[in-house]
Structure formats: structure tokens, C-alpha cells
Design a protein around this nucleic acid. Structure first.
Length: 612
DNA sequence: GCAAGGTC
């Protein structure tokens, strides 16, 4: 018997279905000489400090550098504290029995670093010696699965991938556990002051933005605004220059040839420029883009959206949610017309669905090379029936985005009218000519609109002279960037690697950013639980505690996104066969340094924690 | 009491 182990039940069941295995047992499915079982993500984790004899939070224990890391069963919080998750324990027992009985294991965890780690932790924890081969697929269609099984790889081909995964895991433990204890102890051991490779740079981003806004000095400037009329229609134009003082603006205002100062047609049209602009549809949703949209439109937190989406996934209404890809492969694309057809008589999306069925689909979101462990989020086409409001809202965002993504470009026409009336003025306007994908929701254009922008402009010709019906000086001021919301923070976590100056580090982070799609919501929640940040309406604002910690760590590597870049670069080298030992030694060195530094630097925090 | 990673 061969046992196939997947990362999660949904994949295990899908594989079983393709093989025609149908005998459902508790925790696995049998049939056709195969047994299909699964994990629930990471069942095992690096054991906590006390399992190496580091009891309590004591300076004498630091830095904690286990000779050999141990694995322990994932814990859950109950009223009696942390206990081994009984569901995990049970599944692990099932896997152990199946591994004992089989003559070969086929590893079908997700095709990536963490997927490899999920399997290897189980394999080594169970002290299993059975041979294993690797299924490596990035699409869950029948064809891709069959093809993958015909091309199983030797398990050892992924040893270096496991090495890099293991190094990532241990490094996070070493730096995170030690830095957290060091800071907490030196601040008087009154509260958990957690630090980590991901959470601390995230906190730093929020604090830096907050301080930038707090210290922002707005600069006042002036513009002159005029209103012109063309027949019955009025439109607004703004001086092409900004003025530093009110006096300069008033001097320009005085020169305007408006009707009131005796000029019936004092607005001379110097030029009219029209341009058509194509706006391609947005890509399909990945988890992060969906969390951003849900935060913007409905105010849901990243964590809420993930929870709702997981729920929809468990009800089989949407595909796998924790994806970082906004693309699908050609195989999935082939199923899209049938999927769209399911919404033909939908009372809101029906029209869009019908349009798409009669027109060529836009393939912007179709690119197999950009599908990583999972493809973009799509509805499954199963009729959801009645859904509560929050689930309905998220479900509609998934369906609506699918319709948008395969829709046509939106065609806009921008018009720029240059006017002279004593001095130079300009009027801008944008008109949607063909709505294309924007017809799905018919939302107002979300692009930034300046106050000088006119929704529609009357048809005017070069050389015309029009009456200037109003004029005024407008006082304006420069604005700081806005505080982070969950939406803008998620975006920043995804893209922060792209702002790194060092080219190699930037490259190393090019498809990762800070954290992963599956973990970013929980990173935000951690910062809130620690009382480092609070939600104020949609904004994420640092607390005095958060700012005090930022002040202690802001110059240190643990607060920089670059640290992840450096690790990613080395981990990729390890995957390519480079020494694990060199990296581990560097991490141990760094752990020693940061621990020492924090044991000193945290002392100043004690007072803040007492006074609040 | 602690990381970051995965999932129910």
C-alpha cells in the first residue's frame, strides 16, 4: 500500500477523487491500492524553551541556544492554559499507523518551502524510515494531478528545500524567543514585550508613519479658481501656478477678465487636448487584495476577512483562500466560461455574466508561471443559497472580481482645456467612454480626484472666448501621508521589499515581502494583543508602549524589513545547496548580539510600563 | 508568558 499525505483535508480528498478512491475512514480515504491522508497545516512546531530546560524568564538563561531542536505537537489555548490540540494528536496517530503499514509514502503537501517542512517534521517526529517520493504540482485540476503522479520526484531532491525551511524556522525561534525574553526581562518582567523578524518591522512601519504625520508641518499655498460658462453649462478652471502668499494670488485674481469687471467674454480658450486612456481590468483576487478591498469597502479587519473566507472555503463556495497568486493557469481558465454561466440569471451579476459569455474573455489574469502554491481565489460555482451579510459581502467580492477580471478594458477620455484670462488657467475632466470592467459594480472611479477635476466638461473649441462667471482665491495646504489602515498596511507588507536599496536583498524579497498571505492578519492581531497598536476607526495607531518599544529597537536590524531580505537570500542559497551551518552560525552570533543589546536597552522601558 | 509558519 502507498500512502499519500496532503497538507490539508481538501487536497487529500481531491487527490483521492482523481484516483477513484472512495472508502472514507476517520482521517483518511482508501481505494485502488492507495491511502490518502492529510495534515492540518503544521501539526508540529519547534518545542518551547522549557523543553530544553530553560525554565522561567531569567537573564541567566539567555541567550537560549538549544543544541538540538525538538518538535512538539501543536498546542491550543484552553482555560487550563496551553494543551496539545486533541484533533492534531489524533490525526498524527492516524498518520503514524498509515506510515507503519505502507511500503511507500507520496508527499503531496503544498509545493513550497513550508509544505516540505510540514511533511518532514511529521516524518522525523514519527521516526519514520519508509521511502518517500514527492508530488510537485501547482494546480489541482485532474490533468495536473495525474501528470504530477506520473512524474513523482525522488524525495531526496527536496532535501535542500527542507534545509532552508528548517533554517527559517529555527532562526525565527532563536531571534524571536531570545529577543522577546531579553526585552521583557530588562524592562522588569512586567509584561510580554514580544519582538520578531516580521512583527517588529511591521510595528516600526506603523510607528514611523505615525511620527511622520505628527511632525508634519503643513505648508499653505494659494490658487486662483475661476468658473466659466458655455451656454447652460458651467465648468471650473484653476491657475496653472500655485502661490506662496495670498498677496500674489490676489494680484492674479485682480487681473481676471470676469463678467463682473466688465468683460463679457474674458476667458480665451488657448487649447483643447483630448486623450483616450485604456484602463485594464484588475487582476483576480489573492487573499491580500481581497482583505484590502473588504477593509476599504466594508471596514472588515484582515483577520475577519480571512475567517469569513475560510468559512466559505469550508462550505465549498470558494477555492483555497490563503493564496498569494492573482493568476490562474490555462487549465482553470478552460473552466471559467462554465463558471461564469452559473451567474447568468443572478439578479445583480446576471448582466455582466451574459456579456462575458458573448464576448472574448480578457486573459490578463491567466498566467501559469505566476501561479505559485495556489491560484487566485475564484467561486466554485456551487449555489450558496442564503448567506449572512458578511459572508454574502465577501462572496460577492469574489464573484464580482472574477467578472471584472475577464471583462474588457475601461476606456476613458481625459480632456485638458487651457484658458487665458489675465493669466493661465487649466480645466481637467475625465469621462468614461466605455465602462468595460467598471460596469460590473458601477462604482465611482477610485482614482484620486483633485478638486480641480470636472466630472464632465462641455464641448469647447480652441479660440473660443467664454464668459468668466466667478473667481476666487483658494487657500490650500500640503497634506501628510495618511495613517496606515489594515488595507494600506497589508499592501505595504507585500511591497516593502521593493523599497530596499540593496539590489540583492530586494531581489531576494521580490516575491515574498514581509510575512506571508496566511500570516499577515495574525501579525496585525499580535501587535494589538500586545497593546503596541490600537484600531481607531480604520486607522492603526501606535500606543505609547508601541512607540516606546519602537524607540528602543528602531535602529536595530530586528526592526528592518531588510533582515527578511538577508535571510531570504541565504535561504535561497541553502536551497541551492549552500552550507546550512554557516547560516546557523551567523544567526547564533546575531542572537547573542541582539540579546545582549536588548538586556541593556530595555531598562529604560520599565518606567513607561509602570506609568502607562 | 515568548517567533513565524501552516490550517481547522
Amino acid at each position: 500500500m502507498k500512502v499519500v499525505i496532503a497538507e490539508k483535508p481538501s487536497v487529500g480528498r481531491e487527490l483521492a477523487k482523481v484516483f477513484g478512491a472512495t472508502t472514507r475512514k476517520d482521517g483518511y480515504i482508501e481505494g485502488k491500492g492507495y491511502t490518502f491522508t492529510w495534515a492540518f497545516g503544521h501539526l508540529l512546531q519547534l518545542a518551547p524553551p522549557q523543553e530544553y530546560g530553560f525554565y522561567g524568564w531569567r537573564k541567566e538563561n539567555l541567550p537560549m541556544l538549544p543544541q538540538k531542536f525538538k518538535l512538539s505537537i501543536r498546542k491550543i489555548k484552553t482555560k487550563d492554559g496551553l494543551v496539545e490540540d486533541p484533533a492534531v494528536k489524533k490525526q498524527l496517530d492516524t498518520i503514524k499507523r498509515l506510515f507503519d503499514e505502507c511500503d511507500e509514502i507520496i508527499v503531496a503537501t503544498d509545493a513550497g518551502r513550508e509544505g516540505e517542512l510540514i511533511f518532514r517534521y511529521i516524518y522525523y517526529y514519527l521516526k519514520c524510515k519508509k521511502p518517500f517520493r514527492r508530488l510537485w504540482i501547482s494546480s489541482q485540476t485532474d490533468e495536473a494531478i495525474k501528470d504530477g503522479f506520473r512524474n513523482l520526484k525522488p524525495g531526496t531532491e527536496y532535501d535542500t528545500l527542507f534545509n532552508s525551511a528548517h533554517a527559517r524556522s529555527q532562526s525565527d525561534w532563536l531571534v524571536g524567543m531570545n529577543a522577546t525574553q531579553a526585552l521583557s526581562i530588562s524592562a522588569g518582567n512586567k509584561a510580554v514585550l514580544s519582538l520578531g523578524r516580521v512583527q517588529t518591522p511591521t510595528l516600526a512601519m506603523i510607528c514611523a508613519r505615525y511620527l511622520e504625520i505628527k511632525n508634519f508641518v503643513p505648508k499653505i499655498y494659494y490658487q486662483v479658481a475661476i468658473q466659466l460658462s458655455k451656454g447652460e453649462q458651467f465648468f471650473k478652471a484653476i491657475s496653472t501656478k500655485n502661490f506662496d502668499t495670498k498677496e500674489e494670488a490676489e494680484a492674479v485674481l485682480a487681473k481676471v477678465l470676469d463678467v463682473e469687471s466688465g468683460n463679457p467674454t474674458g476667458g480665451h480658450i488657448k487649447n483643447v487636448e483630448g486623450k483616450a486612456k485604456k484602463e485594464p481590468p484588475p487582476l483576480l483576487h489573492d487573499l491580500s487584495s481581497l482583505q484590502q478591498e473588504a477593509n476599504k469597502k466594508k471596514g472588515y479587519t484582515a483577520d475577519q476577512t480571512l475567517g469569513i473566507l475560510q468559512n466559505l472555503y469550508e462550505s465549498k463556495l470558494v477555492t483555497y483562500p490563503r493564496t498569494g497568486s492573482r493568476y490562474i493557469g490555462d487549465d482553470i481558465f478552460a473552466t471559467v466560461p462554465d463558471l461564469i454561466a452559473k451567474y447568468k440569471s443572478h439578479n445583480f451579476f446576471g448582466k455582466s455574466a451574459e456579456f462575458l459569455l458573448e464576448n472574448k474573455l480578457n486573459k490578463r489574469s491567466v498566467n501559469a508561471k505566476k501561479v505559485t502554491d495556489h491560484h487566485a481565489v475564484l467561486p466554485t460555482g456551487i449555489d450558496p443559497g442564503y448567506l449572512p451579510e458578511d459572508k454574502q459581502a465577501i462572496y460577492d467580492m469574489v464573484v464580482g472580481r472574477m467578472l471584472e477580471a475577464f471583462h474588457q478594458d475601461c476606456i476613458k477620455e481625459t480632456t485638458k482645456i487651457s484658458i487665458e484670462s489675465g493669466s493661465d488657467f487649466v480645466a481637467n475632466g475625465t469621462v468614461i467612454k466605455t465602462a468595460g470592467w467598471r460596469s460590473v459594480f458601477n462604482d465611482p472611479d477610485d482614482e484620486k480626484k483633485d478638486a480641480s477635476e470636472n466630472a464632465t466638461l462641455p464641448k469647447v473649441d480652441k479660440g473660443e472666448n467664454l464668459p468668466v462667471t466667478k473667481k476666487a482665491v483658494v487657500e490650500k495646504q500640503t497634506k501628510p501621508k495618511p495613517q496606515y489602515t489594515e488595507a494600506t498596511l497589508l499592501k505595504a507588507l507585500e511591497t516593502c521589499g521593493k523599497e530596499i536599496e540593496d539590489e540583492e536583498l530586494r531581489y531576494a524579497m521580490k516575491d515574498s515581502g514581509l510575512g506571508t498571505p496566511a500570516t499577515r492578519a495574525s501579525i496585525i492581531e499580535t501587535l494589538i494583543t500586545r497593546e503596541y497598536i490600537t484600531r481607531e476607526k480604520k486607522n492603526l495607531i501606535p500606543s505609547s508602549k508601541g512607540l516606546a518599544i519602537y524607540d528602543v529597537v528602531k535602529e536595530k536590524k530586528i526592526a528592518q524589513a531588510e533582515l527578511t531580505g538577508q535571510w531570504e537570500k541565504r535561504l535561497e542559497e541553502i536551497r541551492g545547496g549552500a552550507s546550512v551551518l554557516d547560516f546557523k552560525n551567523e544567526i547564533i552570533d546575531y542572537t547573542r548580539n541582539i540579546t545582549q543589546e536588548l538586556l541593556v536597552a530595555g531598562a529604560g522601558l520599565e518606567k513607561m510600563l509602570v506609568t502607562g
